[in-house]
Amino acid sequence: MLRGLNPILSPDLLHILRAMGHGDDIVIADANFPAESTGRRVARLDGLSATDVTEAVLSIMPLDSFVDDPAITMQVVDDPQATPPVVEAFQKIIEATADNPAAVKPIERFAFYDRAKAAFAIVQTGEGRLYGNIILKKGVIAP
């Protein structure tokens, strides 16, 4: 155990977050996401929600302030204007927790998968809400 860290942050996830560099992406994925076939590195947090994991990650990882879209979600198939409740929850977490709050940007499903394939890592959660996937871009910590 360590002081000051959310206990959701497993040793594997802490290693991933520390190894990431500025501009690297991390995917926090729901239980339906094809993490193992998509990602180079996968950390599993099966019993946890994607929103809880997002909050824990953003409590120690800076969100990139040099890009327009540091937080990306997947558009709803056949209704790209819809905003699922889980995406609304992601937005509230970003506003409350991120050091550089930004608006969540939805992108088309297959574009999301392409971004996920290029991500540094994927965190597979037990999130049961549909569209409970988010890509976060790591920022820098100023000296």
Rank of each mutant, 00 (worst) to 15 (best):
P11C: 10
G128I: 13
F90N: 02
A31F: 06
A121Y: 07
P143M: 07
V27Q: 00
L13A: 01
A71V: 10
G4F: 11
H15I: 04
A142V: 03
P85V: 06
A102G: 11
L2M: 13
I28T: 03
M74G: 13
P101R: 09
M20A: 05
P84N: 04
G128H: 09
V104F: 01
A121W: 09
Y113F: 08
M61C: 11
R109G: 05
M61F: 04
K137N: 12
G4C: 12
A116H: 03
F112D: 02
G126M: 07
G132D: 02
K138Q: 08
E95T: 06
L48M: 10
F90W: 08
G21W: 15
D69I: 05
T73Q: 07
M1A: 15
M20S: 12
N133H: 05
R40H: 14
I135K: 10
H22G: 07
Q81V: 05
K117G: 01
I72P: 01
T83A: 13
V57H: 02
S10F: 12
A29S: 03
A50G: 03
G39V: 14
P84T: 15
D30W: 03
F120W: 09
E108Y: 06
Y131C: 04
G23N: 09
H22A: 14
D30M: 03
F120N: 03
P7L: 00
L63M: 07
P70C: 13
R129V: 04
L14V: 05
I135S: 00
P85W: 02
A119M: 05
G128A: 12
G132M: 02
V67D: 05
T54N: 03
L136H: 01
I134Q: 01
A89Y: 06
D46A: 13
D24W: 00
I94N: 00
Y131H: 13
I26T: 08
A98Q: 00
A103M: 14
G128P: 05
M20F: 02
Q91N: 07
R18E: 15
R44P: 06
A142P: 05
R3Q: 09
V42E: 08
N32H: 11
Y113T: 06
I72H: 06
H22W: 06
L48T: 12
I122A: 09
N6K: 14
R3F: 14
G4E: 11
A89E: 14
V87F: 10
D25P: 01
S49L: 04
P143C: 00
E55F: 01
A118T: 11
S59Q: 12
P80G: 09
R18V: 15
G139R: 00
H15R: 14
R115M: 07
D25I: 00
S49T: 08
I72K: 00
D78V: 01
V27W: 02
Q124M: 07
M61I: 04
I16H: 08
A29T: 04
Q75W: 09
T51W: 13
A96D: 07
H22T: 12
R44T: 14
D30Q: 03
